[in-house]
Amino acid sequence: MKQELTNQELLDRYVFSVKALLARDRADDIAAEIQSSLESVVEDRTTQLGRELSLEELSAILRQSGHPMAVAGRYRDRPFWGLSPEVLRVYRFTLGAILALIFTILAVKACYVFPGRSNLASFLLRFGRELVFGTVIVIAGVTVIFAAWEYLEFKFRFWENWDPRSLSPVPSWTPPSIPRRQPAVQVIGGIAGLVFLALALFYPPLYWIWGGGGHFDLSPAAYAMRLPLWLIAVFAVVQPWLNYTRFASAEWRRFVRVALYIAGLAVAISVYRAGHFLVAGTHWNASRNAASLATLNRMISGTAVLACVLLSIICIHELRGSMRLLGGRHDSGH
């Protein structure tokens, strides 16, 4: 026999649904506050009516409070492009679902195709190219659709007509949360990345063995850029580490970031202008690998163009922030 839902269970379901969508490090705190606030509303309404609320009345309060996706979206720190917090959750969910589908299809296809391929490098290049293009097209497509949706002010109707009673019950068992070791992961991952990059830039034959067809080398233009490239990587990796020090909110960090983005932009432009980043090394089997090397160089150039665009956008954003900071100081100085 189906058990009747109680007011407390309904409230718990709602708070749990919001909590499940919040950032893990703040979820408990925010959920506790939402629960406390809703209990205050219920208490107030109960006092006014002089009786316990019915399930319908509590559902109306929860509907007025907002769909869990919309509520969780409002606790996001920074706005994401032009999307409002209410739409952001649905956007991320849709994007995640479509990307997961695309990756699954590509992975299945790769497993099917790989056994017939003898050249691992060309297979990896093809797989990587499909992965990058698939991801870019999906992100661009979904973002444009949602931006247009927002711009045209379509409403998510299910948020207006949703029924809190249809929310999933709170599971009786929740998996223990794994403590995050973010600083340690960042530091260890960063050092490993820097060591790998140093070896790859200063001794590429060690890593880039090309399916038995010889190895490739950095072009003269790339050789000339390897030290600045590595130093930029060092600064980029160290930047997030500072979040765990007393310099976490230091104002000068914004200017360091601007300098870093400008340097990155300069390197990305140089890579693009150089035309090719990699050349054939010793024992190179040209007939077997020429096409793959050309594809790899095109991918590096394409990545450089993307990096230029992204770095320009971030740089403009940071510069505007820096100007505001300087402007604020100037104003307060008078």
Binding site: S37, R74, Y75
Partner: peptide, 14 residues
């Protein structure tokens, strides 16, 4: 609205 107030309080606190 509560959905505006609570995130605002958190932002001001941060």
């Amino acid at each position: 609205e509560e959905n505006t107030l609570y995130p605002l309080l958190r932002r001001l606190e941060s």
